[in-house]
Structure formats: C-alpha cells, structure tokens
C-alpha cells in the first residue's frame, strides 16, 4: 500500500503485492460503512442503474470465496480492495453484509479471504493513473 500510494502520487501505474497489516479492527459494520457505503449505500440498497444492491442479493449471500474474490479484485466499476484492506477487514465487511438487511448467509472467515487472495490475482486494469 505504501508503494502503491507513492506510485500513485508519482502519477505512475500502480502495482502492489503488499498486504495491509492484519491487526486492523474487525467491526464489520464500520468496515462496510467506511469502504463500501458510498456506492452500495448504508442500507445496502445500492443505486438503481449505477451500483448493485447488496440487500437480498443472491451473489453476496452465495459462495463466500466468489464474493471475496470480487472485493479483492474489483468488478465493473468496483475498485479492487486487495491493497487497501486486510483479509480480516474484508471478512468482517462481508460477514456484516451477509447478515444485515434480511440477508442470512454464514459469516466469511479471514482464512477464506486469505486463500482467495493467495490464488493468482486477476489481471486487473493497467492501473490507476493520474491525468
């Protein structure tokens, strides 16, 4: 993350393999509100036509590794959180989403996220570049 930010600041392509510290707080709701709610909204309703709802969504309530993969690597307009959030933070946020607003899926463990992270990272965009 350090390198990523420095390179971003430098207006260069961002590439990072670093993993954030694992000692972050594990308040799933707080992680969700801080990192996800701008787009998906605090009540998980999303914004029609722009950002998908998470409340009542079969995908987030489904296969945990698949959901973790999307958070780690991004999809569509969603950024990759691989460099920004620890396995524990992602697990906590996902577990919150899977239990809030009527969702009722089992929690996601940090180990599940770590296993997905360890797999070959997705070929993401060429990078975020200053313009």
């Amino acid at each position: 993350m350090i390198l990523r930010n420095a390179i971003l600041a430098a207006g260069l392509v961002a590439v990072s393999n670093s993993t954030p510290a694992q000692d972050a707080p594990l308040d799933g709701k707080a992680e969700f509100l801080a990192n996800c709610s701008a787009c998906h909204q605090a009540q998980g309703t999303g914004i029609k036509g722009a950002f998908p709802a998470l409340a009542g969504d079969a995908f987030v309530d489904g296969d945990a590794p698949a959901a973790a993969w999307v958070v780690l690597n991004g999809r569509g307009g969603m950024p990759a959180f691989r460099s920004d959030l620890s396995d524990g933070q992602i697990a906590a946020a996902l577990s919150y989403v899977r239990s809030a607003w009527g969702n009722a899926a089992p929690p996601v463990t940090a180990a599940v996220v770590a296993a997905v992270r360890a797999k070959e990272p997705a070929a993401r965009a060429a990078g975020l570049q200053a313009h």
């Binding site: 971003l8 961002a14 801080a34 990192n35 701008a38 950024p79 959180f81 920004d84 975020l128 200053a130």
Partner: peptide, 13 residues
C-alpha cells in the same frame, strides 16, 4: 486531494 480506486470510494462516503 486527487485520489482513485478504493481510497476514493471510502472518502466519497
């Protein structure tokens, strides 16, 4: 600030 990606998503909330 001029920020991108997950950083931008976080602050925009």
């Amino acid at each position: 600030y001029y920020a991108f990606g997950a950083d931008a998503a976080r602050i925009s909330a």
